[in-house]
């Protein structure tokens, strides 16, 4: 564990909490992509199957359980409790176009051709593009609430901080995992355009509005 890893995990946790609190307090999930949330639930489920066979630390176990629970909790709020506020008409990204390529790639490029390892690899590939339905929703409506922007910023920061963690680990521990690194860079790059808008608009108190 290094400072980048810890800060990455904490911003990931904060992103998830921001989203849950936003939905709960406003009693609405307007502007949030249920498709992205489903993809994240698939990501955590396929990745954290190692809860069964690999105990690392209490921190590790607790965080994995929290991510799983928060992810399914978000889906419950969006598709059950506050279903009436769900922006279904704008959330039209076809997630099979992300799931299928991630699955095929996981079968081809992986560390070991074993069920758990392939599922882990699939989760890494899928996570790298899981935010696309959310970004697509923002681009379709042309705007995002500030709180949604904060959520996206924390979520993007998480993977960006993980890149620093990997650089640190490469030099300090001689450890590197090319699958995670390449997918993590792809994931972070997808947020770059958003980061720019966040810094130039949201942080100056303006609403995130895309140019017409």
């Amino acid at each position: 564990m290094n400072i980048f890893r810890l800060l990455g995990d904490l911003s990931h946790l904060l992103a998830i909490i921001i989203l849950l609190v936003k939905i709960w307090k406003t009693r609405s999930c307007a502007g949030i992509s249920g498709k992205s949330q489903i993809l994240f639930a698939v990501v955590y489920t396929s990745r954290y199957l190692d809860l069964i066979n690999a105990f690392i630390s209490p921190y590790n176990t607790i965080m994995k359980i929290v991510f799983l629970a928060a992810s399914y909790g978000t889906i419950y709020l969006m598709y059950m409790k506050f279903k009436a506020t769900y922006d279904v008409n704008h959330d039209t990204f076809r997630i099979e176009f992300l799931i299928a390529p991630a699955a095929v790639l996981a079968l081809i490029v992986n560390h070991a051709f074993e069920p758990l390892e392939i599922l882990w690899t699939f989760s890494i590939y899928l996570e790298s593009v899981a935010i696309l339905p959310q970004l697509f929703l923002v681009s379709k409506t042309g705007e995002a609430e500030s709180i949604t922007s904060h959520y996206l910023f924390m979520l993007g920061s998480y993977r960006a901080l993980y890149i620093f963690n990997w650089i640190y680990r490469y030099y300090a521990e001689n450890h590197y995992d090319l699958i995670a690194i390449v997918a993590g860079i792809v994931q972070t790059v997808l947020y770059c355009d958003f980061f720019y808008l966040y810094i130039t608009k949201v942080l100056k108190g303006k609403k995130l509005q895309l140019p017409a």
């Binding site: 560390h111 390892e117 993980y162 590197y176």
Partner: peptide, 10 residues
């Protein structure tokens, strides 16, 4: 390629 991933990373 790295032979196994790190189960510690989330």
């Amino acid at each position: 390629l790295w032979q196994d991933h790190d189960h510690d990373e989330l």
